[in-house]
């Protein structure tokens, strides 16, 4: 089987999410990559170094800048004449593009796979991860999104794949990119961090969120996450949200501070190796999944913890 993997990149840098998708693809067969964007020669070169990759297709065109699904999906659907499976990481980009490709190919997508059982059989979470389904696809081509935390990352170095330029059908004229607000942070990225400090509604305000959570995260070299309640209340930006509808994380240590542990939040972090919960309510559901729990007032505990570490 020949697979085509979507390469996630930003500002000339290949993103880690790609590497987990490569691992999933390698379980199906030969791995080819697609780098689409504008001035993406460097990304193509980085992609060619990923271990185990056979070929890198590079589609360099202004129409593919910003990954507009309307323009990129027909490009991918065309390349699928010569591939049997398309895989994209379950990032917002992957989730935006892959179903559009699937519909163009008349294929039912398999979303957010956790494992590859065989050429046509996969496991995936449903009901916010409260159930795991094993599904078998009868479509001749497969379109798949890959949960990053479920697969090891392929080695970013060691390969020497051939790079080939491809062209698509250009700008479909349906949509255009207007702008973005992207926060740049010195901290590690949420989805690849080894430690995450996450704050909930109990933080009470944006000022307190940053005054308590940030110093602890800095002490630990951790990424910062948040519950939906904290994001909705404006204590933290939307891209901090962990959960069923936010980011899925599985760090070595996840520290939930003033988070109750709603099923939608647990869906995003319950595969963390060690879960630490700090909550004043000893019956909070978060303690049912926590390895280490401390009952008490976060406004006392967190500053003390930060100081003593």
């Amino acid at each position: 089987m020949k697979t085509l993997v979507w390469v996630e990149h930003e500002e000339g840098q290949l993103k880690d999410a790609t590497l987990s998708a490569v691992t999933a693809a390698s379980k199906l067969g030969e791995v080819h990559l697609l780098v689409a964007g504008q001035n993406v020669g460097d990304v193509g070169a980085q992609a060619a170094k990923i271990a185990g990759v056979g070929k890198v297709h590079v589609a360099d065109d202004a129409a593919f800048a910003h990954g507009l699904a309307e323009n990129v999906a027909p490009l991918i659907a065309g390349l699928m004449d010569h591939h049997d499976a398309f895989l994209a990481p379950s990032t917002t980009t992957g989730k935006n593009i892959a179903p559009r490709v699937a519909a163009l190919l008349d294929v039912m997508q398999i979303s957010d796979i956790l494992s590859v059982e065989s050429d046509d059989t996969f496991t995936r979470p449903i009901y916010a991860g409260n159930a795991i389904a094993t599904v078998k696809s009868s479509d001749s081509k497969k379109v798949i999104t890959v949960r990053g935390t479920a697969f090891e990352k392929a080695a970013a170095e060691g390969g020497s794949a051939q790079v080939e330029a491809v062209s698509g059908t250009g700008d479909k004229g349906l949509s255009s990119f207007v702008g973005q607000e992207v926060a740049h942070s010195e901290r590690p990225e949420l989805t690849s961090a080894n430690i995450i400090v996450s704050g909930g509604r109990a933080l009470g305000s944006s000022e307190q969120f940053h005054a308590l959570i940030d110093p602890l995260a800095d002490k630990l070299g951790a990424a910062v996450g948040a519950s939906r309640a904290a994001v909705d209340a404006g204590y933290a930006p939307n891209d901090y949200q962990v959960g069923q509808t936010g980011k899925i994380v599985a760090p070595g240590i996840y520290i939930a501070i003033g988070i109750s542990g709603a099923i939608q939040h647990l869906a995003g972090m319950k595969d963390s190796k060690v879960i630490v919960a700090i909550n004043k309510d000893e019956d909070a559901p978060i303690f049912q999944v926590a390895d280490i729990g401390l009952v008490g007032d976060l406004f006392k505990i967190v500053p003390e913890l930060t100081e003593k570490l």
């Binding site: 409260n130 078998k136 479509d139 303690f287 003390e304 003593k308």
Partner: peptide, 25 residues
């Protein structure tokens, strides 16, 4: 196009411990 072969519960986490102080944490 997809047939569901089986649906299972995800593996449960082991019960953890509660600590009494920041130092223990």
């Amino acid at each position: 196009r997809l047939s569901i072969l089986k649906v299972v519960e995800p593996s449960k986490r082991q019960a953890g411990v509660k600590v009494g102080s920041v130092d223990e944490l």
